[in-house]
């Protein structure tokens, strides 16, 4: 009960007293939502690329002015896939969509559960920080060497930077989760506003 009140006070929109911490958490959430939408956009474009590649190949037989192939179709689709995968990661975490084993968590007292949640989130933050740093370094190396793809001569640091950004945001969301766990706030929020016919949680 107390927990929910605390949550409402800090998280409610436009409340009179909003701590800098709550603002930071909200900012991360806003970025996460934006990222999720960018992920959806990437998914839609990758579908479009695959269809376009196929259509070009089939139609060019009959339509003389069409190019015989869309050489970037597969390559760019794969970049968009990487972007979809990483951009969605933070939002999936926020909505509780990443798979985990809850055997221990479900048997603990609320206090102990919070403690374990803090610990687990901090482990995740540590690993994701390493992960983000590794990808950043990787991207910078590609940039410094002006590495190109062999399929289309595209500078690969661009899609790599996109993936790095997605992973950075996942790290931030894990950090936000650790903070929420410490501050005894609700950890997860559904991605959809309305409860629909989904079987999730039934």
């Amino acid at each position: 009960m107390r927990q929910e009140q605390a949550g409402e006070r800090v998280e409610s929109d436009g409340g009179p007293r909003r701590s800098p911490l709550a603002l930071a958490l909200d900012a991360i959430d806003a970025l996460t939502r934006l990222d999720g939408w960018l992920g959806a956009l990437c998914l839609a474009s990758l579908t479009a690329f695959m269809i376009a590649g196929m259509a070009t190949r089939i139609l060019s037989t009959f339509v003389p002015w069409l190019p015989p192939d869309l050489p970037i179709a597969w390559e760019y689709s794969s970049y968009l896939m990487a972007a979809t995968f990483t951009f969605g990661a933070a939002m999936t975490l926020r909505s509780g969509g990443h798979i985990r084993v809850r055997i221990l968590l479900s048997r603990l007292s609320p206090g102990a559960r919070r403690a374990v949640e803090v610990l687990v989130s901090l482990i995740a933050v540590a690993f994701c920080a390493f992960f983000t740093w590794a990808l950043l370094h990787f991207t910078l190396t590609s940039y410094a060497l002006d590495e190109r793809s062999i399929a289309s001569d595209t500078p690969v640091w661009i899609p790599q930077a996109v993936v790095t950004f997605g992973v950075l945001l996942m790290s931030l969301q894990f950090l936000a989760r650790a903070v929420r766990a410490l501050a005894n706030l609700p950890l997860e929020a559904p991605a959809f506003e309305s409860k629909d016919e989904t079987i999730r949680g039934s």
Binding site: R57, S60, T61, P68, D69, P71, A73, W74, E75, I150, A151, S152, D153
Partner: peptide
């Protein structure tokens, strides 16, 4: 398999597919 191969076969008149 790569851009050079695609370019070459496109010029030969074929439809390359990566």
């Amino acid at each position: 398999v790569d851009r050079n191969g695609s370019d070459f076969f496109r010029e030969l008149g074929a439809s390359p597919a990566q």
